[in-house]
Write a protein that binds this DNA or RNA. Structure first.
Length: 529
RNA sequence: GCACCGUUCGUCUAGGGGUUAGGACGUAUCCCUUUCACGGAUAAAACACGGGUUCGAUUCCCGUACGGUGUACCA
């Protein structure tokens, strides 16, 4: 008997876990607010929700949390939709797909929240408050002056202007007269709130540290706290998987579930670690991307007000599969040494238990490496296609056949498709200048002599000009002049590319073609003589 | 300030009462390659600190430090 009692606290997590294991269908939601482009951290939250849902054979829901009309940004919702689609995160229910719990936009569910706010009012869990924002601000200032922090809570609520302190007739009169008011939650004075977070374990918070949060704003819209609890209940959400920034308000939400009588079907919580700045302190922000020259948004975004453009991973040349793989492993690991995961593999291996607790610094180098891995895994045809798209953007014309050859030659030398055009520009135009160091080191009279013979031989060649024929003709020229290849190859490369690096030389010759090769050799001989 | 969460190589992380503390990115060197990559090999590189508990702690407990988040009629 005592044995059991002593060990009971240790079992608490197990009990919670058992409840989580009950056969309640898994329904998760990703709930962004359309206040701007979706941050990469938000993408990861969406991803984890998606993986968790698919793994459990559950449902992935997207809900737009647009209860703040002041922060609404046109285009943001469409941006969210496009970002998720680009990454391959499929939605089962959403404002765009519909579903049994529509509408999925909180601004369209106003009446619902009003109803539950009234319920809380009637049950004594909430009250009307008439304090103006100015009054509250003044209050905060006053407290700050005496080195205290103002909290609208059990200690102060009886000194404020609300339905707890004002006579009922006065309250009715104020409401009837149309003065703005909010509805606040009457946080219990002394209550211990415990819950089991699927990532963090047991969390205990005293209700005294939670203030009387606003539930309904004076514009008739609910705050996040009320709206998310009501919607999660109504939409039958089984697991709330969200960022760590919500951890401090989770106890409030639990109190709300209790007050509404919904504790039995309350979802399980899992608070994800944050994505941190690559260096220094704080969470990853848009500034970091600008500062270090990388994207923190999935897609390019143009601020409709300022016209300012923020770069996106897509436009920077990342493949969605690579981004997803990178993001998935930032805060989660499979427990094996596997690094490369397709979406299907991620779904098969994902679990919240293996999500780490600590925030992860965002390292763009790893993202780049992932992209390289995925580029290497692409078929030549696919890479050629992507190259053609990229060339098109820069108004460079190229045949599919040539693009295919270039793709094959460059595949293992790049991390991004666009690098083919920047680092191997010579495929598309003759070099304008020759790298000075390479000229002094590698250009010589012997090379000049051989290359002249070589060019003549090519000119007379009547059949198809392949890498093999190029090689043969060069060997003939070398033999004729009695010069070793080592003296000529770098010089030939210089003539063709203007520099010293790049793919196989004979491939370059073949890809550039017979006429262009001759032209470049002649130009180099003339210019470097 | 208060509340909550966290802390293993520079970074992402594995591990877990006794390990040569493992992998990956990045860095360096070497091999392959007439170049550049790819690939292969090697190297440098970590348990924040202080107390407990224990035969033994990086691992468990408690403090401290540091970091993060929250503390809005924002989400």
């Amino acid at each position: 008997m005592s044995y059991l009692w002593v060990h009971l606290p240790n079992f608490a997590p197990c009990f919670s876990y058992l409840r989580y294991m009950t056969d309640r269908p898994v329904r998760v939601r990703f709930a962004p607010s359309p206040t701007g482009p979706l941050h990469i951290g938000g993408m990861r939250t969406a991803l984890y929700n998606y993986l968790f849902a698919r793994r459990a054979g559950g449902t992935m829901i997207l809900r737009i949390e647009d209860t703040d009309q002041n922060r609404f940004v046109p285009g943001a919702e469409e941006y969210i939709r496009e970002s998720l689609a680009w990454c391959g995160i499929q939605l089962d229910e959403s404002p765009w797909h519909g579903g049994p719990h529509a509408p999925y936009r909180q601004s369209e569910r106003k009446a619902v929240y009003e109803q539950y706010a009234q319920q809380l009012l009637h049950s004594g869990h909430a009250y009307y408050a008439f304090d103006t924002p100015e009054e509250l601000e003044a209050m905060r200032e006053r407290f700050k002056a005496s080195k205290n922090e103002f909290q609208y809570n059990a200690a102060s609520r009886m000194h404020m202007r609300n339905s707890l302190t004002l006579p009922a007739e006065e309250v009715a009169r104020l409401i009837a007269s149309g003065v703005p008011y909010v509805i606040r939650f009457k946080t219990p004075l002394k209550e211990e709130i415990r819950f089991y977070d699927l990532i963090r374990g047991n969390v205990v918070v005293q209700s005294a540290t939670i203030d009387d949060k606003v539930l309904m704003k004076s514009d008739g819209m609910p705050t996040y706290h009320l709206a998310n609890v009501v919607d999660d209940y109504l939409m039958n959400i089984s697991h709330v998987i969200r960022g760590e920034e919500w951890l401090p308000s989770a106890p409030l939400h639990i109190l709300l579930y209790r007050a509404l009588g919904w504790e039995a079907t309350m979802p399980q919580f899992a608070h994800l670690p944050l994505l941190l700045k690559p260096e220094g302190e704080g969470k990853l922000s848009k500034r970091d991307g600008d500062k270090h020259g990388f994207a923190v948004f999935p897609l390019q975004w143009k601020n409709p007000e300022t016209g300012e453009v923020s770069r996106g991973f897509r436009e920077d040349g990342y493949l969605p599969e690579a981004l997803i793989n990178f993001l998935a492993l930032l805060g989660w690991n499979p427990g094996t040494e596997q690094e490369i995961f397709s979406m299907e593999q991620l779904i098969a291996s994902f679990s919240l238990e293996r999500v780490s607790k600590a925030g992860a610094r965002f390292d763009i180098h790893k993202a780049k490496w992932y992209n390289q891995q995925y580029i290497k895994a692409l078929s030549d045809e696919k890479l050629a296609e992507l190259l053609l798209q990229e060339l098109d953007k820069q108004a460079i014309s190229c045949s599919f056949e040539k693009a295919l050859l270039i793709a094959r030659a460059m595949k293992e030398r790049i991390s991004f498709v666009h690098e083919i055009i920047t680092t191997a520009k010579f495929f598309f135009e003759a070099p304008h200048t020759y790298d000075a160091e390479t000229v002094t080191k590698k250009w010589n009279k012997d090379a000049e002599k051989v290359l002249t013979i070589f060019a003549e031989k090519i000119e007379h060649w009547q059949e198809e000009f392949t890498a093999t024929t190029a090689k043969n003709l060069l060997n003939e020229a070398l033999a004729a002049a009695g010069v070793k290849p080592g003296l000529v190859m770098p010089a030939l490369r210089l003539a063709m590319t203007g520099s010293s690096g790049g793919p196989d030389l004979m491939d370059i010759l073949a890809i550039c073609g017979k006429d262009e090769t001759v032209r470049r050799i002649q130009a180099a001989v003339k210019q470097l003589a």
